[in-house]
Amino acid sequence: MNKVNNNSEDILKIENIEVMYDSVISALHDVSLSVPRGKIVALLGGNGAGKSTTLKAISTMLASERGKVTKGKITYDGTIISNQNPTEMVGLGMVQVLEGRRCFGHLTVEENIITGAYSRKLTNSEMKNELEKIYSYFNRLKDRRKSQAGFTSGGEQQMLAVARAMMAKPKMLLLDEPSMGLAPQLVAEIFKIVKELNTKEGVSILLAEQNTNIALRNSDYGYIIETGNVMLKGTAEELLDNDEVKELYLGISKEGRKNFRDVLREEGNSKEIKSLSKTTNS
């Protein structure tokens, strides 16, 4: 492993990476980003933009999907990431929470949390303390500790996935779409906990999200990627204030919120609206 400057301000630095699946399908063309130590960075973009691929390139989970970083360099906490496997990355303090939560359905909630500490050697009393600490962030999970994880709600499973990852005592957490398929109140609750983990435990966080609004409101920096390229980057405030972001990702134009009919009319497609309504009437 090549040791570089360990005290650099960025815990993670990605420089111009390109990723290919099966050596032919190119998923990322040129992505560069950095995560300052102790900050939250949001990676934004639509479906298929390359958010998950970027995260998996960092956590080295790509290999298990026959993907490969073909160009560029990823430096995490002074270590250049090349041939490491996910187990080694967890050892270095980097844990990914996969898209779709992926809890162990047949294990209980508490067993799920305990599996997160697999890479650490803990005595029984240390384990107890760690569990108590985790439950202090995730109150809901404490009530469900004896339930089979497969039977808990989507929100509980998302919390469980984050709680499980936190048991590995990570320096850096990669979150892939924590808001997926959840009700707005739950999304808000989860982001509140993530923010708390960031401030109290000092975990640096890189999160991939489609929900631009809530992600930027809880982050320090943001990157917007599309079809495997970084399109826009800046502090969270800058991005929330940017007209393009407002229009394309937040659905707010300079003249205020627009609905679909307004957009079509502006583009001179009003005829099609009429013909559409005809077919529905007949």
Partner: peptide, 9 residues
């Protein structure tokens, strides 16, 4: 997949 993501070898 999830097991390896949290460091189970």
């Amino acid at each position: 997949g999830a097991a390896s993501s949290i460091g189970i070898p």
